[in-house]
């Protein structure tokens, strides 16, 4: 494997980490108004992700930085092309992050309700738009010979990409419900468990629609034929088995398996995309690929060495921080947020 492919894999890993970790953060935010009615309940929900949401978001920032360093053309085309979509994501993330911090620092119920809305909207928008953005990467968007995106915001919205957005939204919501069932106790835990059981079937429904859409709207059939391969099949099987563990009330296993669904879905996505990084719907010759979008060997080598040195430490202390905050949160826990 050459360095360009290695970096393609590393960026996939960063996005997998991001969607797995921020996935349940977004889910918790989306479920906030439904699962927690009283203020004390809302505080419990927010405090489950309180110590970790910031670090989870860093996976996305690191993915952005890695795109810039390893594939500057991918970074430039994607970010300038999906301009307004990214503005919306940024505004949502700004509001959401501040809302976590500010919400409980004032007693006025209107103040708190306003920030709760910010958390909800700030979670819904990126949960939807990340799916839309990734859908556009595989489906292809108008890109010219200078590697510049030539469409507009509404070119990004099509039936296929909206299905992708709905799918990411649905999976993150379920992921959030499962996370809350493991991190809370009492009434919130029961609501989260019931909700997870209720929304599993709709999530599967959307996943089936997405699977069909993959064949209908993009030329996946040409590339993979009848046998879609190990990764998408695993992601389907794991999603289906989530249903079994939900019925058995083994929510830990359900969480692990849905985590695997996310892992294998994102991996499938990047596997289908390779060796392209962005598909041009204008002309196949204008596709951005791991070769023509990449940085020089020198830069990739340097970044590989730096990453190999740093990443083990990062993973170690990230894991440790989850271990520190492993206990379930209740209204009696000391609540910082």
């Amino acid at each position: 494997m050459d360095l360009q492919d290695l970096w393609f894999v590393l960026i996939s890993v960063l996005f997998i980490g991001f969607f797995f970790l921020e996935g349940f953060d977004y889910g918790a935010g989306i479920l906030l108004p439904f699962i927690a009615r009283k203020d004390s309940e809302r505080r419990v929900v927010i405090n489950t992700i309180g110590p970790v949401w910031d670090a989870n978001e860093v996976w996305m920032i690191t993915a952005g930085g890695a795109l810039f360093a390893a594939f500057p053309h991918w970074y430039a085309t994607l970010f300038s092309g999906f301009y307004l979509a990214l503005v919306l994501i940024l505004l949502a993330l700004i509001l959401r992050g501040v809302a976590f911090e500010f919400r409980s620092k004032e007693d006025d119920p209107r103040w708190r309700r306003t920030w709760d809305w910010a958390i909800f909207i700030g979670s819904v928008i990126p949960a939807l738009l990340w799916g839309v953005a990734f859908g556009n990467l595989v489906k292809g968007v108008p890109i010219n010979a200078a590697m510049d995106f030539t469409g507009d915001f509404f070119d990004l919205l099509s039936p296929y990409t909206l299905i992708c957005g709905l799918a990411s939204f649905a999976v993150f919501t379920l992921h959030g419900a499962l996370f809350l069932s493991l991190k809370t106790d009492g009434v919130i835990r029961r609501r989260a468990e019931t909700l997870a059981q209720q929304i599993w079937l709709p999530v599967v429904g959307i996943a089936v629609v997405l699977a069909i859409a993959n064949y209908a709207y993009i030329d996946i059939f040409d590339t993979v034929g009848v046998n879609p391969g190990v990764m998408p099949v695993t992601s389907a099987v794991t999603l289906l088995s989530v249903g079994y563990y939900l019925r058995k009330k083994q929510f830990g296993w359900a969480f692990v398996l849905l985590g695997l669904t996310i892992l294998f879905s994102v991996a499938t996505f990047f596997w289908f995309l390779h060796p392209n990084v962005m598909v041009s719907s204008t002309n196949e010759a204008f596709n951005l690929t791991v070769e023509n979008a990449a940085s020089s060997e020198k830069t990739l080598e340097t970044m590989t060495i730096v990453t190999l040195i740093l990443l083990p430490f990062v993973l170690l202390y990230l894991g440790w921080s989850y271990w520190v905050f492993r206990k379930r949160i209740t209204a009696d826990s000391p609540l910082e947020y």
């Binding site: 970074y75 740093l310 990443l311 202390y317």
Partner: peptide, 29 residues
């Protein structure tokens, strides 16, 4: 980004990996 990314992107990525993870994890802790 296209013209400078090869040299300018590296410090940004390293910043995220070396610093952002560190500060964001331990502010939570």
């Amino acid at each position: 980004s296209r013209f400078m990314g090869d040299i300018f992107g590296a410090p940004l990525a390293i910043e995220a990996l070396m610093a952002f993870f560190l500060e964001s994890t331990f502010i939570g802790v």
